[in-house]
């Protein structure tokens, strides 16, 4: 069974018919070609698939493509600009906040949303706000440092 959708992915509109069962993450990977979004579990725990839907970080593995009809999606591929990496990506690079990289797109997308919406961030708050993202490599401290740094930079820029 199919359903028609019109979804903007990283500023590019995508109008097509998809199976009703198609999850947003599969649409992003298989239809929109954004393979930076990956899946690390079946139960909505790991957060590897986090993307922005109309400006909110959500887990694209627990959302139907049909539910995103009319929405604007931002994925890891849409984060960098012509000037280079997004400050959050840069902060992750500088703080060695990634190793294997599998959880990275999801955490970066959540972190960008966190910094946009929270203006007073400390370590404890960040650790709570990224509880929906599992990372097996880093032990998280460098991730926290990267987000703190990007938050400081956002504040300076604001």
């Amino acid at each position: 069974m199919k359903t028609a959708v019109s979804i903007i992915v990283n500023d590019r509109r995508c109008e097509t018919e998809v199976p009703t069962t198609m999850l947003l993450v599969d649409f992003l990977r298989e239809v929109a070609g954004s393979k930076g979004t990956v899946v690390g579990c079946d139960t909505g725990q790991c957060g590897c698939c986090t993307v922005h839907v109309d400006g909110d970080a959500v887990k694209s593995c627990t959302m139907l493509t049909a539910q995103a009809d009319g929405a604007s999606i931002l994925t890891i591929e849409g984060l960098a600009s012509a000037d280079g990496m997004h400050p959050m990506q840069r902060a992750f690079h500088e703080h060695h906040a990634l190793q294997c990289g599998y959880c990275t797109a999801g955490i970066v997308m959540n972190a960008v949303d966190i910094v946009t919406k929270h203006h007073e961030l400390d370590e404890r708050t960040i650790r709570r706000l990224i509880e929906g993202n599992l990372c097996r490599c880093t032990g998280y401290s460098n991730i926290v440092d990267a987000i703190l740094e990007a938050a400081r930079e956002a504040k300076r820029g604001a």
Binding site: D56, A57, V58, K59, M63, N110, G132, N133
Partner: peptide
């Protein structure tokens, strides 16, 4: 409830 991604949905 859940985590912030879950709270957005």
């Amino acid at each position: 409830i859940g985590d912030r991604q879950v709270r957005h949905r």
